[in-house]
Amino acid sequence: MDDFSTNRYAGNTMKQEPSHSGPFVNKHPDLWFEDGNIVIMAGDFFFNVHQGVLCRHSVPLTEAIDALKGDDKYARFLEGNIVLELDDNPKDLSPFLMALYDGVSHVKHNSQDFEIVSSILRLATKYAVEHVRNDILRGMSAIWPRNLSAWEFREADATDTTGVYKPRSIYPHPILVINLAKETGANELLPSAFYDLSRCAASEIATGYLPQGSSDRSQMHVLSDECLLNALRGREHASRFLSTFVVNELEGREPSQNCTHKNDTDPFRKRICQATFEATTFEILRDVNGVVFHRSSDPLFAIMDADLMQTRTDSTRLNLLHRACEACRLEFTASVDAAREEMWHKLPLWFGITDLQSWP
């Protein structure tokens, strides 16, 4: 006997029974509504939901339901309701259906909820539920932003009170984000995700990401060959940009025309600003491997830090012996801001992201 009745008017409907004695209906605990009028089957899970909710939000699901009703001869029923079988993973389908009913305001866009975010975005894209897709992308854009100022807020949130940067404790790994963005066409997430990844060692980028606590190598998340090459090329571009900045803006930097010490008769005091920038160069190179702030290969931060060293008084880093005068410091700050904006604008080009409508 079939698991499902093929007679719309059959008096006996399928009952839940233990798996050892017959068919087993694995009803989803939160998405089996007693007043539901359509059963969705995904894998070995069953969801008794409402056709009106599905059809209100999704044209593809509406078409699938209409096609199912038009083929009554082969339709299957469970507890009197027609069954729509989908090829989705029930772990993906469950949060997606919950989003249709409850929205996504409860979803957090951190590392703990990333599987839920991924599931909703995949199926919202597949079933063309634009408002849910847009809500999810709006939340993700706070972590993978389009503009530099939002990136700075994101980085500050990942830095603890001692100045140690710990993004992996709160943000999902960028390889996960890159793969999800490519799968769902969310290309606006790619530049910042690729830049985040480029700060890892090249060997880590090539090896891939294994979720914490997992020893099963089959769970390894890797980039496609194209994305891997783009990530490594972009990493080289970013590193070269930092080197160029150090050479052009720090090494042998001339004092401002308005330098306070420009006309000083004391040779030592006359060179205070130049000596300050030379010391800054040394500090930047000294921390190129993240000795102080645990940020290896992070040109955006290194360029900003070159400016912050001129005013920093905390104990998170060795303080400069001397400070540049206000005129020289302000000119250098302007150079830093311009360089960082230029770098941010170049991220899509560096990482081979050519199908963005606009950036930033």
Results as ranks from 00 to 15, higher is better:
Thr265Arg: 15
Leu148Tyr: 12
Ala186Phe: 09
Gly352Leu: 03
Leu318Lys: 13
Ser58Ile: 07
Ala158Cys: 12
Asp225Thr: 11
Trp359Pro: 02
Val117Ala: 05
Gly163Asp: 06
Leu223Pro: 01
His106Ile: 10
Val247Arg: 14
Arg329Pro: 00
Gly103Phe: 10
Asp92Arg: 10
Thr354Asp: 00
Glu79Asp: 07
Ile175Arg: 01
Met1Phe: 06
Ala302Met: 14
Leu121Phe: 01
Gly213Tyr: 12
Arg233Cys: 09
Glu204Asp: 11
Glu183Gln: 15
Ile65Trp: 06
Gly103Gln: 11
Arg235Met: 11
Leu190Glu: 08
Asp113Asn: 14
Gly103Ala: 11
Ala206Cys: 08
Phe332Tyr: 15
Gly70Asp: 09
Asp287Ile: 11
Leu97Asn: 01
Ala142Cys: 08
Gln219Ile: 00
Arg133His: 06
Leu189Ser: 12
Gly163Gln: 04
Ser141Val: 05
Phe293Leu: 04
Leu123Phe: 05
Asp72Asn: 04
Glu79Arg: 13
Glu251Gly: 01
Gly352Thr: 10
Val292Ser: 02
Pro18Trp: 12
Glu226Thr: 14
His345Gln: 12
Phe96Asp: 05
Leu54Ile: 01
Gly36Phe: 01
Leu54Cys: 07
Ser19Tyr: 13
Asn26His: 13
Ser141His: 09
Pro348Met: 11
Ile175Leu: 05
Asp88Asn: 07
Ser224Gln: 04
His57Arg: 14
Met304Val: 04
Phe194Trp: 13
Phe24Ile: 03
Gly252Phe: 03
Leu123Trp: 06
Thr276Asn: 02
Ala156Phe: 04
Thr161Asn: 00
Leu31Gln: 08
Thr159Pro: 00
Asn319Ser: 07
Ala99Gly: 06
Ala156Pro: 00
Arg133Cys: 05
Asp225Met: 11
Leu78Trp: 01
Gln16Met: 11
Asn230Lys: 15
Arg317Glu: 03
Phe301Glu: 08
His173Asn: 15
Phe293Cys: 03
Pro145Ala: 10
His322Asn: 06
Cys200Pro: 00
Asp216Gln: 13
Asn26Ser: 15
Thr244Lys: 13
Leu347Gly: 02
Met98Tyr: 02
His20Ala: 14
Thr13Ala: 06
Thr276Arg: 01
Leu189Glu: 06
Ser358Ala: 11
Ile303His: 08
Asp72Ser: 11
Val83Lys: 02
Gly103Asp: 07
Pro348Val: 07
Thr313Cys: 02
His221Ala: 05
Phe114Ala: 12
Gly352Gln: 05
